[in-house]
């Protein structure tokens, strides 16, 4: 049997399976009569289950079902963002400031005419000029505006939140709630709010930041004490990456649990 026949057989089997699933799900479990909302609900649940399984099928190997689901996802999300952007920003923010007629047409309360709202409108139109091969260069004006303002905005905020505040956050006491060596050992505890943990946290913050910065210092060769600190720095970085990787595993498993719960509960009804 050749490949295309196999493809047809699989396609028919898949379509039949999901049609049957749709039909079964359309019937309410307790004696209620079949209704339009239940048919619609069943259709969406079945479609969602199909798309989920189509994406999962990539784990076996790349196939047309996966490609279909992926393109559907990309297309739908792009269109969704565009529609929401249009209604929330264009209709929600711009129209009420430039035209009472259009505000009435779109059903939003008209505020007052504000001439400077034409500036973003013109920049927006310039951005769309990208679609034209001749006037494409005009979009650079709008892009330059976006890049410039974002860079300016980010520079100050980053400097403040990620630089100045973070630098001052490294000023930490090495001895927390210190009442002497005797008390430290007699009250020793590994609890997350305990003295030892708090002190360890501060030591790690200080040494980690210090050595991490030295690792990223490129103007001096990493030899001697400097080299040792840099090695500690890379160790700290690697531990951070390990933690990050562990967290990612947790995140991915959560997403898998979410999808499986949908399949088992919403679609197949296997759970209570």
């Amino acid at each position: 049997m050749n490949g295309s026949r196999w493809t047809m057989i699989v396609l028919i089997a898949v379509v039949t399976l999901f049609l049957v699933s749709w039909a079964i799900k359309s019937f309410p479990s307790s004696g209620d009569t079949i209704s339009w909302p239940s048919i619609r609900h069943a259709f969406f649940v079945t479609l969602a289950a199909f798309v989920t399984l189509a994406i999962f099928s990539f784990l076996y190997k790349d196939n047309p079902y996966y490609k279909f689901a992926e393109h559907l996802f990309v297309g739908v999300s792009a269109a969704y963002w565009m529609c929401v952007g249009f209604w929330s920003t264009f209709v929600g923010n711009l129209i009420p400031r430039i035209s009472p007629g259009l505000s009435k047409f779109f059903g939003v309360p008209y505020k007052e005419f504000t001439f400077y709202y034409f500036v973003p409108l013109i920049l927006g139109i310039l951005l769309l000029m990208r679609l034209s091969s001749k006037a494409g260069w005009l979009s650079r004006w709008a892009l330059a505006f976006i890049v410039g303002t974002t860079a300016g905005l980010n520079l100050i905020r980053y400097l403040r939140s990620d630089f100045i505040s973070q630098v001052s956050n490294t000023f930490v006491p090495l001895l927390v709630q210190w009442k002497g060596t005797g008390a430290f050992f007699s009250d020793f505890s590994l609890a997350s709010g305990g003295q030892f943990t708090l002190m360890l946290t501060n030591w790690v913050i200080f040494i980690g930041t210090f050595c991490g910065l030295i690792y990223f210092f490129f103007s001096k060769e990493h030899k001697g004490v400097f080299g040792a600190a840099s090695r500690v720095g890379i160790w700290v970085l690697m531990i951070t990456f390990g933690a990050s990787f562990g967290y990612t595993v947790m995140g991915r498993v959560s997403l898998l649990v979410g999808r499986l719960t949908f399949l088992f509960d919403d679609w197949l009804g296997l759970m209570n």
Binding site: S161, S165, Q166, N169, T240, A243, S244, Y247, T248, M250, G251, S254, V257
Partner: peptide, 25 residues
């Protein structure tokens, strides 16, 4: 926060971020 980006937010805790729920845990 989703687990993936949780470790990147820890430096802000507790001064700039008063608390954080990292991932499903």
């Amino acid at each position: 926060s989703a687990a993936v980006s949780a470790p990147l937010l820890y430096p802000y805790y507790p001064t700039q971020l008063l608390g954080l729920l990292g991932g499903i845990k």
